[in-house]
Nucleic acid binder design. Structure first.
Length: 572
RNA sequence: GUGCCCGUAGCUCAACUGGAUAGAGCAACGGCCUUCUAAGCCGUAGGUUACAGGUUCGAUUCCUGUCGGGUGCGCCA
């Protein structure tokens, strides 16, 4: 149980004892140090409901409040706030427990079968910056859910099906016959462009391409083999990006759109049997009264085109059903661009209505905004083209290398190279993760790679400072008692003790920026502690205790950064 | 036209979902290195939370309207 939950329970009980059994305690970390460590705000509302004086009720609550061994001081302030100052011994005890726990003392909820669907690029083309946010945010969420103990399945719902694959496969056959296939496939973007040119210019080629779509759908072995070859090459490109980014996606996570092909007619017939499907203008559609079109009528969701083809709504419905019936998932998180919000609302609504997912299955669209350039417009190259993801990552690493070489030229070339990888990739990820995902965000090389401010390099640097202390500390007693005396120690301890709260919150809200904000506060507070409280120059028990604080700080920073997919370094 | 999201310091962003005097970081200005990495720390300045109402003990947060921006709205994904 987190401190906040513990306090909440106790205040709740006190409120009940004071005559307000149904009033919420509303316990939060205090806004300012002079208001204590935590504050309970529930009294004002409760007093209102009971039509009594809030100060008097606060007094009654405090008299009933049992915080023995937890708080050293409880005050009533303002109109009826209850300010709680935690006892240093209590905090020290919490930290001591975290030190001896691999999971840093976080509470383990009942494990749940959860899926995070993320990245999901279209295999027809090379990955570009548009795939970055889903890939990074989804990976962080998957890591956090795994850390709290859930059974996490990662799903890369790649686009490996659709009409453009006929064209690509036809072009693949052509380049293979001329012996250039391997060369051409090395640059997928170019491959797609050339195939498109052939399609537009050559009627015979276009016919072949269309014919291949039909053969592909019909399961023609030869065309299927070509398709598989293309998909494999494209996936290898993706894997290169994932490896470079340090994202935990592998081939086992891939389950593309094509995997649901056989089930699509069944989805249609089941919807029809359920009385949900109607024919309209030649297409098979479901009208959902929950969503109105501009005319105020139920909005249509197309399940099958008039030419018999299926759409991604159909595939997504099949996927929901598979995830329930076969995988038995209790929660599915879709990390997808905010622009698809309406689609997901419709998908979730229809899935439940059609019985493809039970009412208590949690389906959530974890939406995110667009990545913008410094001009506030979608991020593009100078010439206006899309930026390839590999190139973006390489540039980040190059920029980091230049910075590290400038700051610390004494380090060996190899060392600087590996620092540059961690710093460059970390900077890109952190810049994204540290912002509220729902809004658009502005991509800026200089701010994300700055060594000061709320950036990955600052956090990585803070970590190396702690590591440096331990390099010089020699032997220290890992079982030493931890106690809190100085204000800087108290503030650091308080933050360390709130790690579990942040993790729990990120796991439920899927908002990694909360973890970023927390780690930044922690790093900053550690630096204050580092300035105010000499560690190695201290003696005896004080030295041991401060080393314990430093050790827990290091582990918390490392764990937190790794949950964001960011590597830590011993020196930089 | 209509649905959704958004508008907070010069800039980039927070504000634990209704709590106290709206906080950080850049940038600006001023301090602190013979002492654990100064890639750091301390301080100063910077605000009518787009605007106008409403709800209540209390609003950046909830409701209504206005203005401004983004994005979606039946055979792409």
């Amino acid at each position: 149980m987190t401190i906040q939950q513990l306090l909440s329970q106790r205040v709740q009980a006190a409120l009940a004892a004071a005559g307000a059994p149904d009033a919420p305690a509303i316990v939060q970390p205090s806004g300012k140090p002079e208001f204590g460590d935590f504050q309970a705000n529930g009294v004002m509302g409760a007093a209102k409901a009971l039509k009594t004086n809030p100060r008097a009720l606060a007094q009654a609550v405090v008299e009933q409040l049992d915080l023995d061994g937890i708080a050293e001081k409880i005050e009533i302030a303002g109109p009826g706030f209850i300010n709680i100052h935690l006892a240093p011994e209590f905090l020290a005890g919490r930290l001591q427990a975290a030190l001896t726990d691999d999971a840093l003392g976080i509470a383990r909820p009942v494990p749940q079968k959860v899926m995070v669907e993320y990245s999901s690029p279209n295999l027809a083309k090379e990955m570009h910056v548009g795939h970055l946010r889903s890939t990074i945010i989804g990976d962080a969420i998957a890591r956090v859910l795994g850390f709290v103990g859930h059974d996490v399945a990662r799903c890369n719902h790649v686009g490996d099906w659709g009409t453009q694959f006929g064209m690509l496969v036809a072009y693949l056959l052509e380049t293979r016959q001329s012996g250039d296939a391997e060369l051409e496939l090395a640059d997928l973007e170019n491959f797609y462009r050339k195939a498109k040119v052939r399609f537009d210019e050559d009627a015979v080629f276009a016919d072949t391409a269309r014919n291949f779509v039909v053969k592909l759908q019909g399961g023609d072995a030869e065309v299927l083999a070509l398709w598989q070859q293309f998909v494999a090459v494209s996936m290898a490109h993706c894997q290169e990006v994932y490896d470079k980014l340090g994202v935990g996606l592998t081939l086992d996570a891939v389950r593309g759109e094509s995997a649901y092909n056989d089930d699509l007619p069944v989805v249609v017939s089941d919807l029809r049997a359920a009385g949900l499907l109607v024919e309209d203008q030649g297409a098979q559609v479901v009208f959902l009264p929950e969503f109105k079109n501009p005319e105020g009528e139920a909005q249509a969701m197309i399940i099958q085109k008039k030419d018999g083809g299926y759409l991604y709504a159909t595939t997504d419905l099949a996927a929901v059903r598979y995830r329930h019936r076969t995988l038995d998932l209790k929660r599915v998180i879709y990390v997808v661009d905010a622009r698809q919000s309406l689609h997901f609302q419709q998908l979730f609504t229809l899935s439940k209505k059609a019985g493809f997912a039970p009412a208590d299955m949690v389906l959530e669209h974890v939406a995110f905004g667009t990545m913008m350039g410094e001009d506030g417009r979608p991020f593009k190259t100078r010439s206006g083209g899309t930026v390839k993801l590999v190139e973006l990552i390489d540039e980040a690493i190059e920029r980091a290398y230049a910075l590290v070489s400038e700051k610390n030229p004494g380090l060996a070339e190899d060392t600087r190279r590996s620092i540059a990888r961690a710093v460059g990739v970390g900077a890109v990820k952190y810049a994204d993760l540290s912002k509220n995902r729902t809004s658009d965000y502005i991509f800026n090389w200089d701010t994300m790679l700055a060594f000061d401010g709320n950036t990955a390099p600052y956090l990585q640097y803070a970590y190396t400072r702690v590591q440096s202390v331990f390099r010089k500390a020699g032997d220290f007693n890992a079982a030493a008692a931890l106690f809190i005396a100085e204000p800087a120690e108290k503030q650091l301890a308080l933050l360390l003790a709130q790690f579990d709260e942040v993790i729990e919150s990120v796991a439920s809200t899927c908002q990694p920026h909360q973890l970023c904000g927390y780690l930044f506060n922690l790093a900053q507070q550690f630096s204050r502690f580092y300035e105010a409280c000499p560690i190695l120059a201290a003696e005896g028990a004080v030295r041991d205790s401060r080393l314990q604080l430093a050790a827990l700080t290091a582990r918390t920073l490392k764990t937190g950064l790794e949950l964001l997919g960011i590597a830590v370094l011993d020196e930089m």
